[in-house]
Design a protein around this nucleic acid. Structure first.
Lengths: 211, 211
DNA sequence: ACCGTACAGATAATCGATTATTTGCGGTAG
DNA sequence: CTACCGCAAATAATCGATTATCTGTACGGT
């Protein structure tokens, strides 16, 4: 049942995964022709995939000079962390004010899946996805799709930047922080939860000292 | 100087303007073939323009069913207003903490241009652009490109939603609010400025009662 | 030796046509 | 009368090839 989707979709997914997995270095140019032949599709399909990536912030477009992996690194990572630390705690406040029982149940389930997930070292992708879902579920209670779309975008940027900014693995005590976060959110302690989230985001996303 | 750019660029600008100007109703489908023939270009160019619009949130993509103007209306507008009211005051706080003299000068200049601009009724586009630049300049002092990109995106969404959500004109006292905002920001009164901005965004963007 | 220019190869942008998918309609069975 | 099936028109997706633009290099003038 996991059979081939449209060529465009497969191409898009493949290039996206390649960029996110760091198979191309930042600022490396992404050549439609090469990608097309490699995946056995036409130029138009490769171009479309690249254009979609540009819309997501996963590629830059240089007019008449093609596409490239966006520049990234510690500085950009710092900015993304700050942006997340600015926005997400406020979203969590709203969620705690507005979230209903169904939200609480989903938070519990998401945290449970994250806690039970295979460790990061064993399967970074699976852990990362559970991690994303936990964070997103926490914020989904805010009931604002526009803010959630902003979160989605920042998360993608964050993951890309993280790969190139030194600290590939999550902080050692991420599990404890997630547990505290869940607990504060379900206890409806907005201030404490917001503070924890701010610290968590800042800590998790901050690059390691380059000492 | 205003001569023809690439076909792709002209096409993109034309469709973007058409959508922003409300020449297509929300959820109306945008047909590449029609747009292409109308502008005398090939399908690929129209498709590319649409793909770029999708990336900006100015078009939706329905797989195998083409493109459409995104659904919008009062409810979405409310969410955008809330998102802006959540994010922008925090950015302004940062700007007030970090902004340098050069930032202050640019804020003054932007406010001056807005105050001197032709009134909204006379040239909505020109006034709107001066308005956007003033708001953006205020926030630029925050020094975070990621947050500024978020602002840019929300502004676009906001303008599109505003057109379809009842209140086309800015609030009557927008000028007074802008003046107060400039004054509070330059006085470095972060709390007051943030509060003013939150109120301003909420008020300006809130749809008129549909009574 | 240095700078500017012209050429050649590579890459991006565009095109016109072909193929695949969806949608609406008409006919038919239940 | 309604539900289902299939055909035909419309539209989206894809392709292969052509045209425009850029990049680096070699040549010639100063």
């Amino acid at each position: 049942m996991t059979e081939a989707q449209s060529p465009s979709e497969r191409m898009y997914a493949a290039v996206r995964a390649a960029v996110m997995n760091g198979e191309f270095a930042p600022q490396q140019s992404l050549k439609p022709q090469e990608l097309a032949t490699r995946h056995g599709v036409s130029l138009a399909v490769a171009r479309e995939a690249l254009l979609r990536l540009v819309g997501e912030g996963l590629a830059d477009r240089l007019p008449n000079r093609g596409f490239a992996v966006p520049a990234t690194g510690a500085e950009r990572w710092q900015q993304i962390a700050e942006a997340r630390a600015t926005i997400e705690p406020e979203m969590l406040r709203m969620a705690i004010e507005r979230g209903d029982l169904e939200w609480e149940a989903r938070v519990r389930a998401a945290h449970h899946r994250l806690a039970r997930a295979v460790p990061y070292e064993q399967d970074p992708d699976a852990w990362g996805e559970a991690h994303r879902v936990f964070h997103r579920t926490l914020l989904e209670g805010c009931g604002n799709d526009v803010l959630l779309a902003t979160f989605d975008r920042l998360w993608v940027d964050s993951e890309l930047a993280r790969r190139w900014a030194a600290a590939h693995a999550p902080a050692r005590d991420a599990a404890a922080e997630h547990l505290a976060l869940e607990e504060a959110a379900l206890a409806r302690e907005a201030d404490r939860a917001a503070g924890l989230l701010r610290d968590h985001v800042t800590r998790t996303v901050r690059p390691l000292k380059t000492s």
